[in-house]
Simulated assay, not measured.
Amino acid sequence: MSIEPRTVTLATSDHGDVTLPEPAWCAGCSHHDPETQRADLIQVGPPVECIYLGRELLAAEILQSL
């Protein structure tokens, strides 16, 4: 098992390619728009739903602004 931190490289409109650490809970960056500015980069965790009697009451995600 590697102890190196995971990283992701994302294209930005104002700083070019930016390499960032990627937490284990991050669901990936498939939604990334290359026209995003570096200040607007976020990491998103997978959605978690709260269901009661077969009906969704709420959903939540972990977000981290970079």
Rank of each mutant, 00 (worst) to 15 (best):
M1R: 10
M1E: 13
M1F: 10
M1C: 14
S2D: 15
I3S: 12
I3C: 14
I3R: 12
I3M: 07
I3N: 14
E4D: 15
E4K: 11
E4G: 05
P5N: 08
P5G: 06
P5W: 11
T7H: 10
V8T: 08
V8C: 04
T9S: 13
T9D: 04
L10W: 06
L10K: 02
A11D: 08
A11N: 05
A11C: 00
A11H: 02
T12E: 03
T12R: 01
T12Y: 07
S13L: 10
D14F: 12
D14N: 14
D14K: 01
H15V: 10
D17V: 02
V18Y: 01
T19D: 07
L20S: 02
P21M: 06
P21S: 10
P21N: 15
E22R: 08
E22L: 07
A24Q: 13
W25R: 08
W25L: 05
W25H: 11
C26W: 13
C26Q: 10
A27I: 01
A27P: 00
A27L: 07
A27F: 13
A27Y: 14
G28T: 09
G28N: 14
C29G: 02
C29W: 15
S30D: 15
H31I: 00
H31A: 08
H32I: 09
H32K: 04
D33E: 08
D33A: 14
P34A: 06
P34Q: 05
P34G: 04
T36L: 06
T36D: 02
Q37C: 12
Q37D: 12
R38T: 05
R38D: 01
R38K: 07
A39L: 14
A39P: 00
A39R: 07
A39E: 15
A39C: 06
D40Q: 10
D40H: 07
D40S: 09
L41G: 04
L41C: 08
I42A: 14
I42W: 15
Q43S: 02
Q43T: 01
V44P: 00
G45V: 08
P46M: 08
P46E: 13
P46A: 15
P47V: 10
P47K: 14
E49V: 11
E49P: 00
C50N: 13
I51N: 03
I51P: 01
I51K: 11
Y52F: 12
G54A: 00
G54P: 01
G54T: 01
R55G: 03
E56C: 14
E56G: 04
E56Y: 11
L57Y: 14
L58M: 12
L58W: 15
L58A: 08
A59N: 04
A59P: 00
A59G: 04
A59I: 09
A59V: 10
A60L: 06
I62N: 00
L63Q: 06
L63W: 15
L63N: 02
L63K: 02
L63E: 13
Q64V: 04
Q64Y: 14
S65N: 03
S65Q: 11
L66R: 04
